[in-house]
Design a protein around this nucleic acid. Structure first.
Lengths: 286, 286
DNA sequence: TGACTTGTCG
DNA sequence: CGACAAGTCA
């Protein structure tokens, strides 16, 4: 028996939005620590990994580990019917072959219940080594999204160079060459500021999302942690798909070592979305 | 060596937007006075002419005149990645075959550098005689755009009649006849004019949604300078494309003499965009 | 069906 | 000026 309730549907909606372009089906692996999902994209190039820790739910109950095979296409359709501040409860019996999903509106007495059919999915659970990366770049997630968008007009690949001075993103193609440079410590306004109030922090999920329209954007500085300079080339198409996760949080961190897959991480309260992507081996690949 | 820096990208963005529907490639002719661009549209019907005077740049440096062959398609893609208030610097070495374009964000240390490949373009530089026109009509550029839009619903050509009383725009087609009259001195709020004058036809389709902007539109009176009445017919398709320049400035002026190409001018600080279009010879042409 | 572009709102 | 939503194109 699994039963998990989250105060607001918005995080779940954003998580689904973040991965639905990459994944069509996936197993949700649940245990007492929370819910995890991991899957390669359809062309087996990128790995997506989602964690929703049990702390993010109240209550959370999972008597014994279970693996729930979900069609993200179906789940997307269902989750889109929820309001952002609806309460979401998901429930699964030990024996059933369907997943119960319930949305309760806060202001009215509207209750929507879905019973989503499940799938049998071969879970190719890949162990991901807990690598130490040579370079970790953290920046505003909006900035990351924009860099992907801007460079996409020039080419299909981006070379990321990280050094002490900063991080450079460069692309080239028919129309010429583009290079975008961020200096360490450089601030960048995000789209979503949320002000930390001192009083009400803890377990209460902050559903006050004041998306500070104009003016009061929080400045999110670029931070670089570097053991060794790296230079890696990636497919912009995938990096752009990763950027769909940007609404989840202010920051994204890119973890890189030469010739090792990139880890692109979006962390949020009580969970994260991580993407892994192998670098292009050489520039002639394109 | 050319180096020119403008404080804000917005003007450049608007200039490019104004001509990109008409022109795909053009030479940017640079000298110490500034940058000029002149080109016929692809079907060799309309002439576009852009001037960016050196005063609009700081600093501006152009050691010797040069002609830079630019693909507006590429330039459009690049310029779209700039924020409106980014600082723009364009640079070209005397010998290179590419144009350096740099956007610097004001708030952060984000720097985007592009190196755009150039083209060899046969510059058919047409001398434009500095004509004295018989009639010059100046009006709100938003009003101009709206007239083009409204009349396009009715027909493909517009006849413009200028007399002492005012200026009339008329079109006809399948669904009937439309005539729009502006009187001299009549004020018009930018964007939403409905000056109901006596000549108003009821056949005018009313699907105008007046998006009167922020309410505080400046009133821009219609001004007519007239030596002799004129009556000319133009393709609405082209006049509508000219209207893309409207964001550049509050006013547009239409310079006309019978049987001579129209000059449609959008002037702004330190520059202008001008369009020339030959009149249709007779109304049976359509 | 999804992604992108454009237009509107805050 | 940035974010959201709708419409269009692929």
């Amino acid at each position: 028996m699994l039963e998990a309730r989250m105060q607001s549907a918005s995080t779940l909606k954003k998580v689904i939005d973040a991965v639905r372009d990459l994944i069509t089906d996936a197993n949700f692996d649940c245990n007492e620590e929370g819910i995890r999902m991991q899957a390669m994209d359809n062309s087996h190039v990128a790995l997506s990994s989602v964690e929703l820790r049990s702390d993010g739910f109240a209550p959370y109950r999972c008597d014994r580990p279970m693996s729930i095979g979900v069609s993200l296409v179906s789940l997307t359709k269902i989750i889109k019917t929820a309001d952002n501040n609806d309460t979401v409860t998901i429930k699964k019996d030990d024996d059933g072959d369907s997943l119960g999903i319930m949305f309760e509106s806060s202001k009215s007495d509207r209750v929507a219940e879905y019973d989503m059919k499940l799938m049998d999915i071969d879970s190719e659970h890949l162990g991901i080594p807990d690598t130490q990366y040579d370079a970790v770049v953290s920046m505003a997630s909006g900035e990351y999204a924009r860099i992907c968008r801007d460079l996409s007009v020039v080419g299909e690949s981006v070379r990321i160079d990280v050094s002490k001075e900063g991080v450079g993103f460069s692309a080239d193609g028919e129309l010429g060459v583009a290079k975008l440079t961020l200096k360490q410590g450089a601030g960048s306004a995000t789209g979503a500021g949320d002000d930390d109030d001192d009083d009400d922090e803890d377990s209460k999920p902050n559903k006050k999302k004041r998306k500070a329209g104009s003016g009061e954007d929080k400045v999110v500085p670029v931070e670089i942690r570097l053991n060794q300079s790296v230079s890696l080339t990636f497919s912009l198409k995938y990096l752009t798909m990763f950027a769909k996760a940007a609404p989840l949080c202010d920051r994204v961190s890119l973890h890189m070592s030469n010739e090792v897959p990139l880890l692109c991480e979006f962390g949020f309260d009580d969970g994260h979305v991580r993407f892994y992507l192998a670098p292009k081996l050489s520039e002639d690949d394109e």
